[in-house]
């Protein structure tokens, strides 16, 4: 009923990997002085032309950067926050000239949309949601899903950004347990997946708001984060990371895992473990999955990248200038990897 069969791909030795597989394209230094917390990429219309821009977040400021012909990055806009610090950027696919951010201390207390006035002259911010927010994700078709909890119930809300700046709201049927992460299901339009605090995976119908199924995926790993889900041949494939995974197992250190679930029967089986190469220590701190590639910042301060189809780690990026990596994101606008350090250095690979 739970994860039983897990294949291990051949784990290459550490020596065969190097960051040479990654090509450094440019570097961006944010001199804001406060701790750098996140990075993302967004389409933004500047002087009538839609351009891929980089968004950086420090504790109390979010900035939009445009790439100049000289290869240098120019800061175009900055949004400032006086009271509550920024926790993460929430990219919304299919949206131009808008970026969402989650603010809070340990937990998310606010979600705000950051935009500019129609003439592009000044920065604006709109408060979208407040409360004890546990999970938030930008979805395709200009939507944003979030879950918040009061003492007695949970609300799962989908907001759609209409052209012209207005928002429409819809509620999904909440599960009894707190939702920790969301993921869209590629290959099944209108299916949304969530992981819960009780190690269950839930599926909604985004169109009707129905809660379709709750599936237990086993107790081997607690607090799994779902990074990607896709439906193929009647099965649901889910890529999870495990913040609580043991640092050393005989097979190496597992960082990501691919599991297959039959949504009809709620039975699941482990398909693949994505481990660190021999000789590498560390476990998952934070990471991102796009298409067939997974990237993770490890407790060792190194970034590791896996090809999910090959099944093994294909590149290791050690700390640069004696600074550990603190976050990593795949660009949503092109094929770049954005790697960040706490002091505000962003490296584009």
């Amino acid at each position: 009923h739970s994860i039983e069969q897990t294949e291990l791909a051949d784990v290459p030795a550490c020596d065969s990997l190097n960051p040479g597989n990654l090509q450094l394209v440019s570097k961006l230094k944010n001199h804001s002085g406060s701790c750098s917390v996140d990075v993302s990429a967004v389409w933004w219309e500047i002087a009538g032309v839609k351009e891929p821009c980089i968004v950086t977040a420090c504790e109390y400021a979010v900035s939009l950067w445009k790439l100049l012909d000289t290869g240098q990055w120019e800061k175009r806009y900055s949004w400032h926050f006086a009271e509550v610090p920024v926790l993460q950027i929430v990219p919304v696919p299919d949206v131009c000239n808008l970026v969402c951010v989650a603010l809070g201390n340990l937990e998310i207390r606010e979600i705000r949309a950051l935009l500019c006035s129609s003439d592009g002259g000044c920065e604006k911010q709109v408060l979208l949601r407040t409360g004890n927010i546990h999970a938030v994700l930008g979805l395709t078709q200009r939507r944003l899903v979030s879950s918040s909890r009061t003492l007695c119930d949970q609300q799962v809300e989908v907001m759609t950004f209409a052209e012209g700046g207005s928002e429409e709201k819809q509620f999904l049927m909440p599960p009894e347990e707190t939702v920790l992460t969301f993921a869209e299901v590629q290959g099944t339009q209108e299916a949304l997946l969530g992981t819960t605090i009780m190690n269950n995976i839930v599926i909604w119908n985004l169109k009707t708001g129905q809660l379709l199924k709750k599936m237990h995926i086993g107790d081997s790993y607690q607090a799994s984060v779902c990074h990607k889900a896709y439906s193929e041949m009647g099965l649901l494939f889910v890529v999870l990371s495990h913040p609580c995974a043991k640092e050393k197992e005989p097979s190496g250190s597992p960082v990501f895992q691919l599991i297959a679930i039959n949504p009809k029967t709620a039975l699941s089986v482990g398909v693949m473990l994505y481990c660190l190469p021999q000789g590498q220590a560390g476990r998952f701190l934070e990471g991102d999955v796009k298409d067939n590639f997974a990237a993770a910042v490890l407790t060792s301060g190194t970034i590791a990248i896996w090809d999910l189809l090959l099944g093994h780690c294909t590149a290791l990026l050690p700390p640069i200038s004696d600074q550990n990596w603190s976050f990593v994101k795949w660009s949503g606008t092109d094929s770049h990897l954005l790697a960040g350090q706490k002091d505000g250095n962003i490296f584009v690979y």
Binding site: E4, Q5, T188, E190, A191, I203, N205, T208, Q210, L211, L212, K213, S231, M233, G234, L235, L236, A260, I261, N262, P263, K264, T265, L267, S268, V269, V271
Partner: peptide
Amino acid sequence: CSQADLGPISINWFEELSSEAPP
């Protein structure tokens, strides 16, 4: 993974679950 581990599979699982779940 073999089909036996996961029970009977349906390509149309999303539509079937949507028709079975409470509105």
